[in-house]
Simulated scan of single mutants.
Amino acid sequence: MLILTEKDVESLVTFQEIIDINEQVFIKQSKKEVNCPNRIIIGLKDKGNSYFKPALVDDMAVGLKVVSSVPSNQDRGLPNTPATVMLLDPESGVVQCLISATYLTGLRTAAGSAIATKYMAREDTSVMVVFGSGIQADLHIRMILLVRSCIKTVYISSRTVEKVDVLIKELASLYKNVEFINSSAFNVKEVIGKADIIVGASSSKSPLFSGNDVKEGTHLCLVGTSLPDAREIDSVTMVRSKVIVDDYNSCIMAGDISIPIKEGLIDKSHILSELGDLLTGGINPRLLDSNCITLYKSSGTAIQDIATGSLLYQKALQSKTGQFIDMNGK
C-alpha cells in the first residue's frame, strides 16, 4: 500500500492536470459510468460531523473518502476539514493507496468551479470577487485564472483580514498582470456591482451580499457550505440565476437551494442540470442568453475525489513518490 502525504500531493500534479481529470469524470457521470452512493454522516457529538463518501469510476478507480468538519480544529493547529482518500485495487479489493486529502479536496473543488467557469462565464470577464481567505479561496483564484486569463482585478473579502493580506502577497508575486485588492472593509454593494465572477468560498452561514446588486451576465461559484441551514447567497440571487450543480442529490439539500425552495420562491426544476450533462451537450444557459446570471453550486461529490486520487496515485508510481507499506507482511 502506498501512502501519500499532503506534501506529496502538492508536488505531484499541475492545476491543469487536475482540471482535466475532473472534466473527464464529470463527463463519465453524465454517461452513467460512475457509481456514487449517498454519503453517510456521523455526528461527532457537538464537535462536528464526519462524512463517508464511496464511489466507483469506470476504468479509473474505486474508493472511499472520509472527511470531517470540525471548526475547533483551528485551535489545535489542525485543518478544519481533515480528509483521507482510500483507493482500492478494483480486481482484488485490496487497499492500494491512502492519501492525505485536505489539499486534494481543495484541488478538486476548485477544479469543478474552474470547469463551470470555463463553460458558463462570459469570455470578456475582467473582475472577480472572492469571499474567503483559506485554501478554497486560494485555489479557486489560481484555477479560475487558468480558464479566464482575461481577469485583471481580484477583490478578496474575509472576516480574517490579516489572512487576506498574506494571500494577496503570495498571489501578487505569481500573477504580475493581476491586481489583488483586500476588500474586507469595502462597501459590499459597490464591489459586487463590479463583479463578472463571484466565488463563495467562505464559512458564512448567512448571505454575503444582496442579490439585487449582482449585475446581469455575472457568473457565481458557491462552494462554502452544504449545510441545509446555511447559505452564502440570498434567495433573490438564487431566483435570478440559471443553476448548474455538481451533484443534484447533495445540492438540493444545501441551504443556498433548499431555503428558497422552502420559501416557495423556486422549485426543484430551478436546477437546470448537473455539470456533467452540460459538458456532454446539455443546455448551457450562457449560450442562450449572454446577459443571464449563471450559478454553479458544489456540495462535493466523491467521484471527483476518487478520480483525482487515482491521478495522484498513477503520478506517484511514475515518480516513485510516497511510502510503501506491506500490509500483508509478517
Rank of each mutant, 00 (worst) to 15 (best):
residue 271 I to Y: 05
residue 271 I to M: 05
residue 271 I to R: 05
residue 272 L to R: 11
residue 272 L to S: 09
residue 273 S to P: 01
residue 274 E to V: 07
residue 274 E to T: 10
residue 275 L to W: 06
residue 276 G to P: 13
residue 276 G to A: 15
residue 279 L to H: 03
residue 279 L to N: 04
residue 281 G to K: 12
residue 282 G to D: 02
residue 282 G to W: 03
residue 283 I to D: 09
residue 285 P to L: 03
residue 285 P to G: 02
residue 287 L to E: 12
residue 289 D to N: 13
residue 289 D to S: 09
residue 290 S to L: 02
residue 291 N to P: 00
residue 292 C to Y: 01
residue 292 C to F: 01
residue 293 I to K: 02
residue 295 L to T: 14
residue 296 Y to W: 08
residue 296 Y to Q: 04
residue 296 Y to V: 02
residue 297 K to M: 09
residue 298 S to N: 05
residue 300 G to A: 10
residue 300 G to E: 07
residue 301 T to K: 10
residue 301 T to L: 12
residue 302 A to V: 11
residue 303 I to M: 12
residue 304 Q to C: 12
residue 305 D to F: 11
residue 308 T to G: 07
residue 308 T to K: 03
residue 308 T to A: 13
residue 309 G to E: 06
residue 310 S to C: 13
residue 311 L to I: 00
residue 312 L to R: 06
residue 312 L to F: 06
residue 312 L to P: 00
residue 314 Q to M: 13
residue 316 A to L: 07
residue 316 A to W: 09
residue 316 A to R: 07
residue 316 A to F: 07
residue 316 A to H: 05
residue 316 A to G: 02
residue 317 L to P: 12
residue 317 L to G: 14
residue 317 L to N: 15
residue 318 Q to P: 00
residue 318 Q to T: 11
residue 319 S to N: 14
residue 319 S to G: 04
residue 319 S to C: 11
residue 320 K to G: 03
residue 322 G to R: 14
residue 323 Q to A: 14
residue 324 F to M: 13
residue 327 M to Y: 11
residue 328 N to I: 06
residue 328 N to E: 13
residue 328 N to V: 05
